[in-house]
Nucleic acid binder design. Structure first.
Lengths: 112, 112
DNA sequence: TAAATTTATCGTAATATTACGATTGATATG
DNA sequence: CATATCAATCGTAATATTACGATAAATTTA
């Protein structure tokens, strides 16, 4: 036990959950915000800015890379990371669609 | 070790991460989608629909309740759950703002 | 080539999450 | 009141996540 029962849910539900998991850590939120603001950065910069160990940052970057949210290109001895804007837009729309259904009929309060 | 270093990040980053964690499981996505579609439901219905054990569903519901996304009102021997629409809207805007910064300038591709 | 610099990966410890059976507590019904 | 019904909680096992030191791999520079 202790393992998510992926088979019980549909593709969209699993995809959303996996993406949410990628956002489920303040360091990864911070990394993405930083990339969105500066259009690029290197691992070393993040280590100084975030205050986590180099190995830890690298681990977070790998997770974001696995989901296609970012990519890195080697530049000398360092690596230049940036957002994958196409993927970013894709994910943005997925979350938008998830939250949309309730955006309009907010007048009837039901049990809350 | 193994515990998230919350103190290193600002309030918004931590809040987003905590909310993302709430969405980081397909069962909770499914529950929220269901509540958004039907305006209310009971634990028992979800047990049948999702195929997870009653205790597991209850655990997921508690997590969503803790974040204020849903609430339940007792109705006989069962509990009627529904979305907290005000909170839902709040969270929707938080994610919208998070994804917004990159929504426009998608023409320059950089390293990706 | 040797040393320095930078990132990735390995190994490991601490903690969190997921899942479920069993039990408890609360309300309805006979 | 006894029993049935339904959800919450407890206890526990399996797995995942987070963090970091140490080491490896790759590239630049002296």
């Amino acid at each position: 036990m202790g393992v998510t029962k992926t088979a019980l849910f549909d593709v969209e539900q699993n995809e959303l959950a996996v993406l949410a998991k990628a956002l489920a850590h303040p360091a990864r939120i911070a990394i993405l915000q930083h990339l969105a603001a500066t259009t690029s950065c290197i691992n070393g910069t993040l280590v100084q800015e975030l205050g986590l160990a180099q190995a830890t940052i690298s681990q977070h970057l790998r997770k974001l890379k696995e989901l296609g949210l970012i990519c890195g290109s080697i530049e000398g001895t360092s690596v230049n990371y940036c957002l994958d804007r196409k993927r970013w837009e894709e994910v943005r729309l997925l979350f938008q669609d998830f939250f949309a259904p309730l955006a309009d009929n907010s007048e009837d309060t039901l049990c809350c």
